[in-house]
């Protein structure tokens, strides 16, 4: 029983991070109909910049409480990632907006390679440990343990997601975003500046990605130039699982994926009589995705797209 609770808690932490990254994918997809393959690299840069700023502060002899240092570092990392997201859209996607659909996919992949190599140039190929400034005290819940930090991660994720939903549903900017996603041409005629909206989408998604990157780095206590790839892939899977383009779907898909993955990793050995071990963890994400899409071809919460008459 306590293993079960433990795995659910682990899955919740992992899943809320996936959800935060998935929002970045799904927002861009909703508005432009394209997979932003470079989003994982934005997440990675968020983590790397944060670690660098914290190390710089420590080296300069500034010693504040751990939380305050992370917060200051985030104030640097979030704008940096927003700028990165803005640049990615300008350089790789905007010139190709009317090009065949696969062209921006290839520039995204090219850019993703470039960003990884830039990260190697700056931070090297090795794993970078997260500075030991954070409190790792634990709380017991039903016999399972969770660190205070992880509780904070989940709460922060929920707050950010609620904030994003509020922006999209209640503000003028959000209305313009929804209009653009339905029909950019008509939105333009109604006085929406489509270019600004697209940029705003990338900037917001990248900001969330930066926060998520820091969460990943604190949760695993390390960062690496290649970390964005797998986590981005999982988050994208989550977005598709929920129904890509749908914000609620990304959140649901992310959390579901996180929980399924950690439950799977915890129980796969027992389920298969020891035939498959926890090294098959990564298979779960994809297996679940395939099964869900067989029964719901446009994701859990995705709208059914009617076939053209």
């Amino acid at each position: 029983m306590d293993i079960f609770v433990q795995q659910i808690l682990n899955g919740l932490v992992l899943g809320s991070i996936y959800a935060l990254i998935a929002l970045g994918y799904t927002m861009v997809y909703g508005i432009m109909g394209l997979i932003n393959f470079a989003h994982g690299e934005v997440v990675m840069f968020g983590a790397m910049v944060t670690i660098t700023v914290i190390s710089a502060m420590t080296n300069a002899g500034i010693h504040l409480p751990g939380g305050a240092m992370v917060l200051i570092a985030l104030m640097v990392a979030i704008p940096a990632c927003m700028l990165l997201g803005f640049t990615i859209e300008r350089v790789a996607y905007r010139p190709l907006r009317n090009a065949p659909k696969l062209a921006p996919l290839i520039t995204a992949i090219g850019l993703s390679i470039v960003l990884q190599q830039v990260a190697i140039l700056i931070w090297g190929r090795n794993y970078i440990p997260f500075p030991p400034i954070l409190n790792h005290d634990t709380i017991d819940i039903f016999g399972a343990t969770i660190t205070q930090l992880q509780v904070l991660i989940v709460i922060l994720c929920l707050v950010l997601m609620a904030g994003l939903l509020l922006v999209v549903e209640k503000t003028k900017l959000g209305r313009a975003m929804r209009a653009t996603s339905q029909n950019p041409g008509v939105a333009g005629l109604m006085g929406v500046n489509v270019n600004t909206i697209v940029s705003a989408t990338f900037v917001m998604g990248s900001g969330l990605g930066a926060v998520a990157g820091v969460m990943v780095a604190t949760n695993y206590d390390q960062a690496h130039y290649y970390m964005g790839f797998m986590i981005g892939l999982k988050a994208f899977t989550a977005a598709v699982l929920g129904g890509i383009g749908n914000l609620g779907g990304a959140v649901a898909g992310g959390i579901l994926l996180g929980i399924i993955e950690s439950l799977g990793a915890g129980y796969i050995g027992d389920l298969t009589g020891g035939f498959l071990g926890s090294n098959y963890q990564d298979i779960f994400a994809f297996a679940v995705l395939i099964v869900v899409l067989i029964f719901r071809p446009s994701g859990l919460l995705g709208e059914k797209i009617a076939d053209r008459a």
Binding site: K101, L233, T237, V240, I244, I283, L289, I290, P297, G299
Partner: peptide, 24 residues
Amino acid sequence: PVLKLKGDYLAIVTLGFGEIVRIF
């Protein structure tokens, strides 16, 4: 299994398939 899927949904499922084969 993916006959009904379109566009990017198909892309991500094929991607998952490739990863599953590699992991095995």
